[in-house]
Structures are given as C-alpha cells and as structure tokens.
Amino acid sequence: MAENRYYGVRVEGAKYGVGFGSALAISISYTANHSILWAIIHGILGWLYVIYFALFRS
C-alpha cells in the first residue's frame, strides 16, 4: 500500500513540473519575441526552451 502512495506523489509532481515548464517557456518566449506563434511553439517544447534560453540567450 505504501508503494501506491509513493507512485501517486511522483506522478503528481511530474505533472506539475511539466505545466510549470511550459508556462515559464511561454512567458520567456513572449517577452523575448513578442509573438504568440513562437510562444505556443516554445510552450510545447517547455523545459527545453527554458534551458536553451538560460544557456545561450541571457
């Protein structure tokens, strides 16, 4: 029974992490490019765009 509870916590944490990464990517992209289309594309990429922006564009 303890295993099921641990698994539920991991799934919920991963779900919220992906949502936050997408929101962060959208806000960074729109601020940098002022384009809704690029913001949507970067929102799909999520954390990949956030890491790219942190390494190469800041």
Rank of each mutant, 00 (worst) to 15 (best):
Y52G: 01
I41Q: 06
A2T: 00
L55A: 04
I41G: 08
T31R: 15
R57V: 12
Y52V: 03
A39D: 04
A23V: 11
A39E: 03
E3V: 05
R5Y: 05
I41V: 13
R10A: 14
Y16S: 12
N4Q: 06
F56Q: 00
R57W: 14
Y7M: 07
E3D: 09
I36M: 07
A32M: 12
H34S: 06
F56G: 00
A32F: 13
A23L: 11
L55Y: 08
E12D: 05
R57K: 09
V18Q: 14
A25S: 12
L37Q: 11
Y52A: 04
M1R: 11
K15F: 12
I26G: 13
I44D: 02
M1E: 12
G13S: 11
S35C: 04
L48A: 05
Y6E: 10
A2D: 01
S35T: 08
W38D: 15
I40S: 09
F20M: 14
G13H: 05
A39L: 06
A25V: 11
G19A: 10
V11G: 01
I51F: 03
F53S: 04
N33Q: 11
W47N: 02
I51M: 01
Y7K: 08
A39G: 08
K15A: 15
Y30T: 06
R57H: 07
V50T: 01
L55M: 09
F20V: 15
V18H: 10
L55D: 08
A23K: 11
R5S: 10
Y7H: 07
Y7R: 08
V18N: 14
I51C: 00
W47H: 00
A32D: 04
G43Y: 02
G17P: 06
R57Y: 11
L55G: 01
G19W: 09
Y16I: 13
N4H: 05
A39C: 04
A2S: 02
G21V: 06
L37T: 13
A14V: 14
L48E: 06
R5N: 08
A25I: 11
M1Y: 04
L24K: 14
S58H: 10
H42F: 07
Y30D: 01
F20S: 13
I40E: 07
G43S: 02
I41A: 13
A23D: 03
L37C: 07
S29D: 06
A39N: 06
I40W: 03
A39W: 03
K15H: 13
N33S: 10
S35I: 04
G8N: 07
Y7A: 10
A39H: 06
R57D: 05
A54Y: 04
S29E: 07
A14S: 15
N33E: 12
Y6H: 08
N33G: 03
I41T: 07
S35V: 07
I40H: 07
G13M: 10
V9H: 03
G43W: 01
S27F: 12
I51G: 00
I28V: 14
V50M: 01
R5C: 04
R10G: 11
R5M: 11
A54H: 01
Y30L: 09
A25G: 09
T31Y: 15
I44V: 06
E12I: 05
I26N: 09
G17E: 15
Y16L: 12
I51E: 07
I44G: 02
V50H: 01
S29R: 10
V50S: 00
E3L: 10
E3Q: 08
G46L: 04
I41P: 02
I40Y: 07
S58R: 14
Y30W: 09
H34D: 06
G46F: 05
L24R: 11
L48S: 02
